[in-house]
């Protein structure tokens, strides 16, 4: 994790410095506690801790001689899941809940290694209906642009 600690530490150092800089745009006022105080204390703390993380990562990197294999992330499926979820947020309102959700669930089932098309079809339709019943009928929580009954 040494290499990742260096990158994350560096990113957090930049983030805290940028946020600290942004506090200078806040209006000056004479109240007991200005709006800049809390964010500046936090940014300063984050800057210090991120520097320590960077330093720890750097030390680990220098000592490490053998390559340690990290657990494999299924990148393709991971990205597919994010894209699918993002597309769902875009089509949910225009297409309505009842039309968009079966595709989301079916897509997710494929990403989660489901191979049976019969199961994908029945589960995605049944789950869409089940969620509708739970949200809309049982708990009276509104869903986008569609009322089945």
């Amino acid at each position: 994790m040494g290499k990742m600690d260096i990158y994350i530490g560096l990113a957090l150092i930049i983030l805290s410095a940028v946020f600290f800089g942004l506090t200078f745009q806040f209006p000056k006022q004479t109240l007991a506690m200005p709006p800049t105080l809390f964010p500046r204390i936090i940014c300063l703390g984050l800057f210090i801790m991120a520097t320590i993380l960077f330093w720890q990562g750097w030390k680990k990197r220098a000592w490490r001689t053998e390559i340690v294999k990290e657990s494999a992330i299924p990148w393709g499926r991971f990205l597919a899941m994010i894209i699918l979820a993002f597309v769902y947020t875009r089509v949910l309102e225009p297409a309505s809940y009842i039309l968009a959700t079966p595709f989301l669930i079916a897509g997710l089932m494929i990403i989660f290694y489901e191979k049976s098309w019969l199961r994908i079809t029945t589960v995605s339709l049944a789950a869409t209906f089940f969620i509708y019943i739970v949200f809309r009928i049982f708990f009276k929580v509104p869903l986008p642009r569609f009322e089945l009954f």
Binding site: M81, I105, L108, I111, F112, Y113, E114, R119, V123
Partner: peptide, 10 residues
Amino acid sequence: NSILFPIIFA
């Protein structure tokens, strides 16, 4: 899991 986690995600 191929049924459980997609439903939970939704």
